[in-house]
Design a protein around this nucleic acid. Sequence first.
DNA 1: TTACTTAACGCCCTCTGCTGGCACCGC
DNA 2: AGCGGTGCCAGCAGAGGGCGTTAAGTAA
Length: 655
Amino acid sequence: MMAVQDEIQVNYLEEMEVDQDSAEVKEDSSTYYVEQETEDNDEFLYGATEHEEDLTAGIVRTASSSGITVHTRETEGGVTEVLGIEDDDVSQSGKETYETVTIVPSEGDSGEVSYVLIVQQPEDEKEEKEDDLKVYDFDEGEDPNVQTENDEEIDDPTTKRTPKKSQTATQAHMCNYCNYTSPKRYLLSRHMKSHSEERPHKCSVCERGFKTLASLQNHVNTHTGTKPHKCKYCESAFTTSGELVRHVRYRHTHEKPHHCTECDYSSVELSKLKRHMRCHTGERPYQCPHCTYASPDTFKLKRHLRIHTGEKPYECDICQARFTQSNSLKAHRLIHTGNKPVFKCELCPATCGRKTDLRIHVQKLHTSERPLKCKRCCKAFPDRYTFKLHCKTHDGEKCFKCDLCPYASSSQRHLESHMLVHTDQKPFQCELCDQAFRQKQLLRRHQNLYHNPNYVPPQPRDKQHECAECGRSFRHKGNLIRHMAIHDPESSAHERALALKLGRQKRIQIIDGQEVQVIDDDEDDEDSETQVLAVEGEDGQQYVVLEVIQLQDGDGTEQTVAVVGDDTDLSNDQILHTDTDIGDLHDPTLMQDLQDSSNGVEFPQPMVQDIKPRTAIKQEIVTENDVKNCFGFDDDDDDEGDDPDSLEFFNPIST
DNA sequence: TTACTTAACGCCCTCTGCTGGCACCGC
DNA sequence: AGCGGTGCCAGCAGAGGGCGTTAAGTAA
């Protein structure tokens, strides 16, 4: 800090300091932030206004804050030069106060380079200012210890040096270390204690020292628990009367004399209002040394620094998880206690664990900028929730109808897949052979079967559907339902109706004068294995039933037929070409997809298309006897030997 | 000169809101 | 299997409340 002294001797006008790290320009107790320059040359300006102009000599910037405007210039060498400082109030009054300043590098004790800002006063003000300064001038012959303290005070960015402008040189008693003056000698004497680190009044309990007897007495009271100032509204008690008064204002009278001029905020303490004002000005005096974050107060900076230090002072006593903030721990603890609050949505049955999540829920599901239109029926809905509710009304309804044939589906995806039949497109081409498919899963299954030697078909499922009457178990719910008819023969029609109502769809029906239900599968189970049936055709050839379709006779009556496949070249006119070949039977997942996508397809007549070896499916009318003969059908599936789920059994290649 | 009051600083706390990662679920 | 929607959770920051401490003002 001797550099300061030297400069003061030469050009003793007014000293300011610019710390290199924060580029912080301080004048007395007010702090003006000129600019912050980080390692990556990002620049931050904490001021109400900013002006930047490129000049050949460098970049000139203007930053304003708290009624003071600071003009700086960055030269080519990266040196920031403060050109001048303006008092906005004075400037507005028309009085020119533009000052010339220079920045002098100064090496501090810590090794960090600071800058001393020397402000050049205009000549006409200089004399008057110097007269004033004489009043507060430092005595060069002061005790060197005292001088050191003063240096530390200047180095400390939090140190305030508040001149009392109202005080004049006519007051008799003046402090030699600061601008304090007092008409009373004792007051100055008392004030001088603030400059001294001497603490003559020692606590007998903890040996801590205090400057005044009153301070010691208050401290001793903390040891003894003596709190003489008791609140008349509650049980609280305090060591000083000031604490009690403030407490009463905070807790009981809610008297808030300090009002914000920008908003309706008011506070008990002025310091709180000052802190509050930073949210209006955007002032962030506390710069993080590790990143670009700057905080409006010390606590936030301290809290923020934990990110860099990794400090997590809050530990869960149950699971030892650690947190940087106390409230994070508090929220975490609720997981263990089970006392999680439940925030119920007023607009739907949804509940959330936290208020903020409920708000997001309402935002996402119950607010929408524009109405949502149902693609199926074109109705519009105000938000996502009502839209989703509406969509459920379409469940089971085949809203997606083909324009070229009577096909209808409950899903847009299925309709799109179906349309490939009309366009004869097969977008999924096998890269290892010339096979192509209409569906992605068909290609995948094909590649597994023919190009992947490591492919292992999934295991058949357990028999999870048990009859409550006799204890027999079935793999498929449909079989159980059918089985239940044994116990109550009169209920079959009702059960079928119920099954249909529940959305379960019959996979195979043999129409031969009378309806025979062969097998159902679990529509509600995505993992359900496909019911694959084998039948024997009129030519004695065994066929595998791949799918069941509805046909219309000439008289308009519907007939259900089974689509079957074999491993032979087919030349029958009534051949339904699909992407499926016999190998499909190895892949139950694929078969499920196939049946899902073809279920309910209404073909006015069979479609005859190109036939390729191993990709042709022969369509046959199969009879009940065909099926029964083929299966040795005994009306249940609890025997592995005749289990229609058994792919091996139904694989025509293996037979 | 003393004792009390007031102002100011600073620390710690809570409440709140936003964000992003993650897991789960349904399509 | 992939993807989007959704809820849960941790991390983090903004804002403000409450109080301990100290210094300055002031009346007795």
